Amino acid sequence: MTDRTKDEALIREVVARAAQAWDDNDATAYAAEFTEDSDYVAFDGTLLRGREANRDLHAGLFDGVLYGTRMDGAIESIRFLTDDAAVIHGTGSVVFAWQREVPKGRRSRNTWVLVRTADGWQVAAFHNTRVRPVPGEGSVVRLFGNYVRWRTERARAKK
């Protein structure tokens, strides 16, 4: 089994630098952690292609609605796909300057794909999504489930 201790530490440094760049509202430093051709999916589904698109979007956000924000999150797991590629699952939510903690409705989970490049580990892909668990029980869930069943059966009967 390969000892991944050094690579894991280097990957954690990439994520820490990205978080610090966010806290500094520095779009250039944030985007520098990504490969030139990186893919970035924001919490709202926006897809960015490339480091410059990432930098441009975040520069506008840091100058506007994300001004003064900080990142609150943690790495949950690091899994190496190869010696030169790893997947990270973590949390990462925006906290406004007047907030002490992340409001429940703003919790996010993210997936990072990092690759080893000539310049060290960099983020090749990032996907962020809000944590919105689907309720699994209760009268409203049962009622909606019955409605879905009824509509599905009607649609199948028309075919």
Rank of each mutant, 00 (worst) to 15 (best):
T91H: 06
G68H: 04
D37G: 07
G73R: 03
L61G: 13
A21P: 00
D72N: 07
D56T: 12
A53G: 06
R109A: 11
G92H: 01
Q99R: 02
L66W: 09
L47V: 12
R100W: 09
R107L: 15
G64W: 03
R70C: 01
A53R: 05
R107V: 09
R55M: 08
T28P: 00
D84M: 09
Y40P: 11
R49T: 13
A27L: 02
V102H: 02
T82C: 09
W22G: 06
S38F: 04
A85L: 11
H58L: 05
V41Y: 13
A53D: 08
D72Y: 02
R79I: 09
A97N: 15
V87T: 10
W22A: 06
L66P: 00
S77V: 01
A32V: 07
A42I: 09
A16T: 14
I75G: 00
S108M: 14
D72G: 07
V102K: 02
D72Q: 06
N25Q: 10
T82H: 06
D26Q: 04
F96I: 00
H58V: 03
E76F: 09
V95Y: 05
R106G: 07
L48G: 06
D24G: 05
L81Q: 12
A31T: 11
A29D: 15
D72R: 03
D26M: 04
T82E: 10
L81G: 12
G50A: 00
H58G: 01
R49V: 13
N54Q: 13
M71D: 09
E33L: 06
L66A: 12
E33Q: 11
I75S: 00
A97W: 14
R49Y: 15
G64S: 12
L47M: 14
G50R: 00
D44Y: 03
Y40A: 10
G64I: 03
A18K: 07
T69E: 02
S77D: 05
R79S: 10
D23P: 01
H58Q: 02
D44F: 02
K104D: 14
R17H: 04
G73K: 03
E76A: 05
A59F: 07
S93A: 02
D83C: 03
D26T: 08
V87M: 09
Y40F: 13
G64D: 07
R109H: 07
F34S: 07
Q99M: 01
V94I: 07
E33W: 04
F34I: 05
E76P: 00
A32H: 06
R107F: 14
I75L: 00
Q20S: 11
L61I: 15
Y30H: 01
R100H: 11
D83F: 04
D56S: 14
R79D: 12
L57E: 08
T35K: 02
F62Y: 12
R106T: 11
A86G: 02
E36L: 02
G45V: 08
R49I: 12
Y67P: 13
V87H: 05
F43W: 14
S77Y: 01
A21M: 02
E33F: 04
P103V: 15
A27F: 03
Y67A: 14
E52I: 10
S108I: 14
